[in-house]
Amino acid sequence: MKALELTGLKKVYADGQIALDGIDLTVEDGDFFALLGPNGAGKSTTIGIISSLVRKTAGRVVVYGIDTEVDFQGAKTHLGIVPQEFNFSLFETVWDIVVNQAGYYGISRARATARAETCLRHLALWDKRMDSSRTLSGGMKRRLMIARALVHEPRLLILDEPTAGVDIEVRRLMWDFLVDLNQRGTTVILTTHYLEEAERLCRNIAIIDHGRLIENTTVKALLTTLHAETFVLDLAKPLASLPPSADFVLSLTDSTTLEVVVEKGSYLNDLFALLSAHGIVVNSMRNKANRLEELFINLTGNGGGLVDG
């Protein structure tokens, strides 16, 4: 079954700006899907239309078989939305925010309190339940928005940059939580600032640029189209000059840091054979950029402020 179908989705704002120019997209039930795009590409507008906060100019949105033109309220029961910006009352407690959200979905008080407890415990917010939301840290506020979005047990959870501005520990906690949620059957759509996040979590990926869909495939398939990867090698001893090579593009960042561009079809074994032949000892090695990030830059021609739109 399809969790989400977007057909010819178009949004033209009152000032004539075309935010979406005919997006066609399908997300299967149970998928973990990444929606990427540079600043102002139209990702948040797409989520806004799906959640009813933005009115579409044209096109069709179907959530679990329910056309939003026919029964938007029915479609909304399947949706959980975690927006990019904090959008809860700063004067309410964590508990009230989550329990009230369940109430808006027509869930009885008894059931709402039980679900709120489950969500808050899963997201390590139980001890903070009676705290005013404005006193929470950035990471806790993000987790509060996830708890709020899950309290009515949606089949499709859409997160707009959920890990923006949170520390690594919290980010990993949220990753584990989302993976677990997806494995238990919830379809997850994610936009993210961290392409590593998309590569690590998602099975399928769509890239939007200037309101159009420019890529829609599996993460695995997309990575196979990568023509070259850049590796950074930390050397054991300073290097005075670069060894000559016909197969690799080598450059020195400083005397002990070597950058190597490995084209598709070249082998790392050959690289290490070359380095060994010249007595160069490597201490460690890493990707210069995330692989998906390199692809993203190639596809969109965007080198900065990658996907914050």
Partner: peptide
Amino acid sequence: HIEEILVAP
């Protein structure tokens, strides 16, 4: 936070 109500059915 009106969005809490707007996204709900």
